[in-house]
Nucleic acid binder design. Structure first.
Lengths: 155, 155
DNA sequence: TAAATATTGTTCTATTTGGAACAATATGCC
DNA sequence: GGCATATTGTTCCAAATAGAACAATATTTA
């Protein structure tokens, strides 16, 4: 029996920033259990998975690109790159003209892993978003899309 | 000048889980800069702020309550409690009937800090959500509310 | 061309984080 | 009551995280 039988979910609606609270709650609800599973079953941490995810959608990226896209610091990416290269999930080839940077790409093996792992996110996404009917879900997608564009334009 | 002039925002729409990606992106866009500012200006980390936030909306909570509400492990809360008590933002009084637990509550000083800090979230929330007009924003709120209820019911 | 400034990716370091084990207390079961 | 099981909150420890400084290379400016 838990400590208190009081309704702690009251905070959902009775706080000063309900939309922020809800968005954050939903993000965590979808993502956290999936990352936990990936960590447990495959041994990849969040930064490593994000690296794989980014590279699954572009032919080539630099570490800096991934840092920009994922919002993680470059040193985290750097460590992830070395571990993922060692495990055969990504390739790394130094730029021929710019000695500082290197181009990263996903390997066949990495692609296969991505396909397997992204399904976990998709399944969990469906579980959560099934709280809406089809029309509502379309509506939500459009609103989110609009917001993301707006947000990346204001920085 | 950044590394690549390619359009890295293409990933917003061309991935397998666009809604998850968007929700996560929006959550981070709102929350991360505010937490960074709070850390910089007030010295509170995320767990400590969440503790303050939870206590601002309930008269009394146990550490376990806060762990349940915030999704953070109990040891993080425990550490936060001691720091926040030492700084005078929260009070802690052991339960008279159950020697294991203690009741936490926000102090006047803590309340004042909460009022000040939650404004930062509100301002950032508005910046981001101003990408929608009033009707759309209402629509979004309703959809999010519905999803949060659904999600907390499925666990 | 030379010097000042940028950028990339890395290492170093301190902080944050969370799992696991733990002591203290409470509850359930016989 | 007495023994097994829960729960609470804490400490311990290993991993993740991110800021800062750094070396190597490019670019810009004079």
């Amino acid at each position: 029996m838990p400590a208190s039988a009081r309704d702690l979910t009251a905070i959902f609606d009775r706080n000063e920033i309900p939309d922020t609270y809800r968005i954050s709650f939903l993000a965590n609800s979808i993502i956290v259990p999936v990352y936990d599973g990936i960590k447990r079953d495959v041994g990849l941490n969040r930064g490593e998975y994000l690296l794989l995810f980014c590279l699954a959608h572009f032919a080539e990226l630099t570490a800096q690109d991934v840092a920009n896209m994922s919002g993680r610091p470059r040193n985290s990416i750097s460590r992830g790159v070395h571990r993922m290269v060692a495990q055969g999930y990504i390739d790394r080839s130094p730029d021929k003209h710019d000695g500082r940077q290197a181009w990263l790409s996903i390997t066949e093996q990495g692609r296969a892993l991505h396909v397997r792992l992204v399904k976990r996110f998709k399944d969990r996404e469906d579980e959560v978003l099934n709280g809406l009917n089809a029309a509502q879900r379309t509506q939500l997608s459009k609103l989110l899309q609009k917001l993301v564009l707006h947000t990346s334009s204001i920085g």
